[in-house]
Computed example of a mutant assay.
Amino acid sequence: MKEDKRELLVRISYLYYIKGYTQQQITQELNIYRTTISRFLKEAQQEQIVSIQIVGYDPKLFELELRIKALTTLKKVVIVPNFPTETEKQKDENLSKKAAQYLKSTIKPHSTVGFAWGKNLAGMVGQLRSFKNTNSLFVPLVGGPSRFNAGYHPNSIVYNFAHQLGGQSLFINETAIQPTAYQRTQLYESLAFKKIFRAWEQLDIAFVGIGGSLKSKGSHWRDLLTAKDIAELTERGAVGDCCCTFFDKNGEVLSGQLLNRTVSIPIQMLRKVPTVVGVARSLDKVNSLAAILKMNLLDVLIIDELTAQKLVTLLADR
């Protein structure tokens, strides 16, 4: 490159990056066409006259987010970085914190917000440092757990967020899996549950967890399944669940007697929600994440770095 050309690139770069001139101001200063300024700024990077660095964050995560978006119908992907010294508990806390921040940044006054199952969803409670009054309605998307896992009850999640974000909450005071389809029908026909259905129809945001395979450990509601339920799900190739609704590797919902006993928002109703946010992490959930993405159910996915790396490899190979 000629010395005069290099000097011009340096001068343009100095004015733009150091002095903060706009391209229009540089045009007036140097008497050069604006389209030429834009081209020269790119050339300055190519010639390594200018080196742009992002401090405090790994841009590879942005690239990973964009890659997953390109391979799916997701509108937004948020990846939480992992660090070598982190414990599993810290990874869960960081994911939950990011999900809570996303809720705070997107919720609008008088919204209707739903929460399903998930350890990371329960972990969102208490992660917000400041409060805001939204006058929103918070509603569970599924029934509750057994008494052995009462600490993860969706009712607790919606109650706490209603308190923290200024609003009201509705409750489902029945377990997610009923003994018979008849008992679930009776519940759905009750006056109290009609309020739940109305809230489901008016949802603006829904936060859902994604469960892994039946062999995965750590689920806080699957103890409600009978041995017959597990045998049938295994035979039909269940790879995961969302809102206590199981699906196979193709993203097909496994209908039948178990689903007819399940107290949860129907998947077809969940599809109509403007923003459905999936929150999950764990290499054991990669197959279930890939399957649910085939359903085009999620709009936003919040996961951690390790899960994202494994997921993008799986998505690219299929």
Rank of each mutant, 00 (worst) to 15 (best):
K2F: 05
K2E: 02
E3C: 03
K5Q: 07
E7I: 03
E7W: 05
L8F: 06
S13E: 10
S13K: 08
Y14H: 03
Y14A: 00
Y16N: 01
Y17Q: 02
I18R: 07
G20W: 13
Q25D: 06
E29D: 03
I32D: 01
I32S: 01
Y33P: 01
T36Q: 02
S38P: 07
L41W: 06
V50D: 09
S51T: 12
P59V: 05
K60H: 01
E63F: 03
E63P: 01
A70R: 04
L71I: 02
I79H: 08
F83K: 06
F83Q: 09
K91Q: 15
E93D: 13
S96H: 14
A100K: 15
A100R: 15
Q101C: 12
L103H: 14
I107E: 00
I107V: 14
S111H: 08
G114E: 05
W117M: 06
A122S: 08
M124D: 03
R129A: 08
R129K: 10
S130Y: 15
F131L: 12
N135S: 04
L137F: 01
V139M: 04
V142S: 05
G151Y: 15
Y152W: 13
H153R: 14
H153F: 13
P154M: 02
S156W: 02
I157P: 02
H163Q: 12
Q164L: 13
G166A: 12
G167A: 07
I172Y: 00
A176T: 08
A176P: 08
Q178D: 00
P179D: 00
T180K: 01
A181Y: 01
Q183A: 07
Q183T: 05
R184L: 00
T185C: 03
S190D: 02
A192K: 09
F193E: 08
I196P: 04
I196M: 06
I196E: 03
F197A: 06
L203Q: 05
A206F: 05
G211N: 11
K217D: 04
G218K: 04
S219L: 09
R222K: 11
R222G: 09
A231P: 03
A231T: 10
E232A: 11
E235S: 10
D241W: 14
D241E: 15
C244W: 14
F246A: 14
K249A: 15
G251S: 13
L258R: 04
R261N: 10
V263T: 01
V263Q: 02
P266I: 00
Q268G: 05
L270E: 12
L270N: 10
V276W: 14
G278K: 15
G278E: 15
D284A: 09
K285I: 11
S288L: 06
K294W: 06
M295H: 08
L297K: 11
L297D: 11
L297F: 09
L301M: 11
L301E: 14
I302G: 11
I303H: 10
A308Y: 04
Q309K: 09
V312D: 12
L314Q: 13
D317W: 03
